[in-house]
Amino acid sequence: MKPPPFAYTAPRTVDAALEALAEPGAKVLAGGQSLIPLLNMRLAAPARLVDINGVAGLGALEATAAGVRAGALVRHAAAGRSEGAARVQPLLRRAVRHVAHPAVRNRGTVVGSLAHADPAAELPAVLAVLGGAVEAASVRGRRTIPAGAFFAGPLEPALAPDELAVSAFFPAAPPRSGSAFAETSRRHGDYALAGVAVTVALGADGTVRSARAGYLGVGATPLVLDLTSVAAEGACAAAFARENVDPDGDVHASADYRRHLAGVLTDRALREATAEALAEARLDGPGARDGDGGGGGAA
């Protein structure tokens, strides 16, 4: 389990990193929590690793009224610790807690997890359910890729080989909203057999205006379902989830069981998110979250 030969570059600026990536066969190394095992198992054989850990300006975690922007070097642990990020978009911290173990969270990055596009990972589902986006850069220019277009397939992000995902944006939670994250894994910290991130937003009258669920582990890419029409009744939402997920079986769980879990977890997360939204609505009144969301700074 030693990697095949590769060249190694450690640029100090984004421009230098992009130039290095413009060469064929280059691959970005950030936290390395997925790439290094793939290299060691000789499942990946890039000609060159472009180590961005020394690149200036990629470590910012900004929480504003609009949302949370995580630079390419923001570690899971930092994203989970940030009070500003948790205020603006509580779902991020809730999901990060389920990402592997502290050692992995200390090294692995939020953007790296998105760019790896593992359909069983937590953060792609979060980005998808929130309708976030990834900003990509290359020597050819910059572009913003919405979550809906970013996850092209399993382990297949919509990034060109020469593109660097420089940041990810997670929109802020709207007023009178709640969120929840629920997953089932075989062992604490494992990739989930199935999981769901749910957001619920209430109208001024206290009825559900929007309920959305982003699933992990039950399809080739993060699946987003609009639960608004079924959110009033947990059993309906669970059945709706079971009908609409498309899981595969593997050595850990059958497709049947994953489908069943999607229903159970939808029910649980939806209740929790709805309860939070109702509490928010009662406690703070309209617009409360907008008021304190802007204070978050870079982590």
Binding site: P37, M41, R186, R187, H188, G189, D190, Y191, V251, H252
Partner: peptide
Amino acid sequence: LLNASFMDFLMPYATE
């Protein structure tokens, strides 16, 4: 052998 790694061969952690 489909689970020949510690990712897929589920040796329990202290948490289990």
